[in-house]
């Protein structure tokens, strides 16, 4: 049985109740990217400011469930101030985490304990994998950020 506590870890509820990096950035210079989950109506807007290949600032607005909101908040905290190349790595790792259930079937390796430790608070979202319909909620902000980075290349 997948328990609710696996999904709604304290870290997630904390980021849901007090989201980090909430708000807007003047655009331009910041890039503004929108993401939608048409199934549940979740919407997210990511503002990102890239200077000299560093994601110097990121802000988010929008609405959605606790998983999409906390995931976007956790993401913003994890990527802010990092070089773009490292941000891409974090995105890739996170997506790997979300594919956990598929990883055992395919050739991709499931994340190791070390990988998880390196992810810090993000690892709290690991429980989402046990609730397949919620994975889209968790990945919405990440896909939106990735799209924003691609557009600014």
């Amino acid at each position: 049985m997948s328990s609710l506590e696996d999904l709604y870890r304290e870290v997630i509820l904390d980021h849901y109740r007090s989201p980090r990096n909430r708000g807007e950035l003047p655009s331009p210079p910041a890039r503004r990217v929108e993401g939608f989950n048409p199934l549940c109506g979740d919407e997210i807007v990511v503002y990102l400011e890239v200077r000299d290949d560093v994601l110097v600032d990121i802000k988010l607005t929008g609405h959605g469930c606790s998983i999409s909101q906390s995931s976007s908040s956790l993401m913003s905290a994890a990527v802010k101030g990092k070089p773009v190349s490292q941000v891409r790595e974090i995105i890739a790792n996170f997506k790997q985490l979300m594919m956990g259930h598929e990883a055992t079937l395919g050739s991709d390796e499931a994340p190791t304990t070390a990988d998880l430790r390196a992810m810090g608070e993000l690892a709290a979202l690991q429980g989402v994998v046990k609730f397949p319909v919620r994975i889209k909620c968790a990945t919405l902000a990440w896909n939106t950020l990735a799209q924003g980075l691609d557009e600014s290349d």
């Binding site: 609710l4 549940c40 469930c65 606790s66 609730f131 919620r134």
Partner: peptide
């Protein structure tokens, strides 16, 4: 304060 998705998820339990 509780998104409908979260309501439904808790109710599923």
């Amino acid at each position: 304060g509780v998104h409908p998705h979260d309501v439904a998820q808790v109710l599923d339990q």
